[in-house]
Design a protein around this nucleic acid. Structure first.
Lengths: 332, 332
DNA sequence: CTGAAAGCGCTTACAG
DNA sequence: CTGAAAGCGCTTACAG
């Protein structure tokens, strides 16, 4: 039998209101009354019904995390680090976590999440900018924040890393190592990350007066396999780069795999540098030089900021960038 | 302004009951009435309030996933694969997912989850058998299933892999490769996984008439670092094993790291075999020979079974084992 | 310091 | 095929 607030109230000889005051530590309650109620709560092992609380209070103390529904989404080290950061903060603040893997094509679905009143706010993870309907969420009353989608929209909150700076760090580093011919592995160009890193590459190359060669641009789409495949074309070139900057680590892994398969040595024949610093980067042989972005902090910051937005403690829109750093290892 | 079932009912000139029938596809509704209501739902962009539905229907269509609250829990490849499998099924079946990272010491907390009426069932992931209060969950009316905790308890549902068979596969394989001295890296002995693999090792060694040597048992506790540290003792031995079976892949990685650091070659000086087949196992150099357990299927099966339990389609207790296989790679 | 009343947005059980 | 009433377990807003 379920124990309700009415049971407690009845046994304590008070009204539900008073019990509610004790549970929520709101309003004044006589010490003796409180003591009696607390004792009963413990005795009867009473726990408030969160669903009922939510319905009447119009607040759920739950945050929704929207992630693209892909087979390997939880296996993505980047996602995993962010989830760690997000859940750490939410848990500490007493918020519950609801996970929403969404079919990005299905507008109705996301709409439904928002309107189902299940959550007090939404963290949008790796949702492409192209998803027009996602933008609508920002127009709704539900507080939300995106991770890794820079967007200058007026009512869009986001947190991202310093992508352009990161690329510059990488290219400058390669340059100072003596590389004049630097290739580039491109990510998805419908994500601000992919765009920014490409822009950063072109800008850095230009600033250093280095050669920009269309043939040295490998289309990788943030996909290891694709990067692996497309690296082959590069190798048939007469005029090859001596170093390759990859827009993320997974693609760098694909590139290295292909290079080694074709008998090239890394870093002797080709220096390779990645972006993110995923966990395997340091385990690999040779270990991967990369630009580290603070994935865990991206998650924890996003959660903190979202809670601040919900509680009106912060002025929106929030647009925050976290710093990046170069991690030198064996592939350069 | 929030659109409610009352708004729709009013505009359609019917009762809330009839609208509810349309939404839930329950009971008969005249085609014309239904059409009118559907049109209004679309026009007004109505979505039912899940919280209100839950409160009155006493069912949430939400499954809770309980995981130990550890910093790196999402980074654990095993957890990640299981989450993939679980979420795939739940999503397909229209269930929502709530994530509960719990402090395993805090009984009140898990109790609260159960009593908050937030979920229709619970999947318990990597929760140690020692957690007495967790066992109590099984005694509550809330349906639940554990992943990877074999437990013969009368009202405990679980799904696990064939641990003992897996170990036998590994030891027999090493034996046929010519190894007579086989060391063992031990996992946590408060988890059925850890226990079963240790038992499996002793049994297999015994059946083959091989030497059982206390000094060849490395305490790893399912922790890569610890395995790395403790491998050192093994190396100071006069009588060393020629092969090492590790209770999981992460520990195998630690062992190999130490071996290589001390100048030993794998597999020439020591053959190493792991358990799980985590993603890095195939990326590593040398790539890791291991016993693959179907982590994704463990997750998807657990979810399916839990839903079957909830819907009374299956007789409890459910105790299911999934098959394992040997994946031969370069470390043996 | 305490309580009676109304209501959150639905569904259930019943009646017709 | 349709609806009026009651209720799920809480909180809010008000009164005293």
């Amino acid at each position: 039998m379920k124990v309700t607030i009415s049971n407690i109230a009845q046994k304590a000889g008070v009204s539900k209101m008073t019990v509610s005051r004790v549970i929520n530590r709101t309003g004044p309650v006589a010490p003796k009354t409180e003591e009696k109620i607390r004792k009963l709560i413990k005795e009867l092992n009473y726990h408030p019904d969160h669903i009922a609380q939510s319905l009447s209070s119009k607040t759920t103390r739950t945050i929704g995390i929207v992630i693209p529904k892909k087979e390997k989404i939880f296996l993505d080290n980047y996602i995993a680090h962010i989830l760690s950061g997000v859940s750490e903060v939410l848990k500490a603040e007493g918020y519950k976590i609801m996970l929403f893997p969404v079919d990005v094509e299905n507008e109705y679905e996301v709409n439904g999440i928002v309107q189902a009143n299940l959550v007090d706010g939404l963290i949008l993870l790796k949702i492409s900018d192209d998803d027009e309907y996602i933008k609508k969420i920002s127009d709704l009353s539900l507080p939300s924040i995106r991770i890794n989608n820079r967007d200058d929209g007026e009512n869009i909150n986001f947190i991202d890393c310093e992508n352009i700076k990161g690329v510059k760090l990488a290219i400058d580093y390669l340059y100072h190592k003596g590389h004049k011919k630097i290739g580039f592995v491109c990510g998805r160009l419908d994500e601000s990350n992919g765009i920014d890193r490409f822009e950063g590459y072109k800008k850095s190359i230009n600033e250093l007066g280095l050669e920009y060669n269309e043939d040295w641009i490998i289309k990788g789409n943030f996909d290891k396999e694709l990067a692996y495949e497309n690296t082959e074309k590069l190798l048939s070139l007469g005029n090859k780069p001596t170093a390759i900057f990859s827009s993320d680590d997974y693609m760098a892994l694909g590139v290295i795999e292909k290079l080694q398969e074709k008998g090239y040595r890394v870093p002797e024949d080709f220096a390779v540098i990645g972006f993110d610093d995923i966990d395997v980067a340091s385990i690999l042989k040779p270990s991967l030089t990369t630009i580290r972005q603070p994935m865990h902090d991206l998650g924890s910051n996003a959660a903190s900021l979202l809670l601040d937005i919900i509680n009106g403690k912060i002025i929106t829109p929030v647009k925050k960038f976290l710093d990046v750093e170069l991690i030198e290892r064996e592939t350069t």
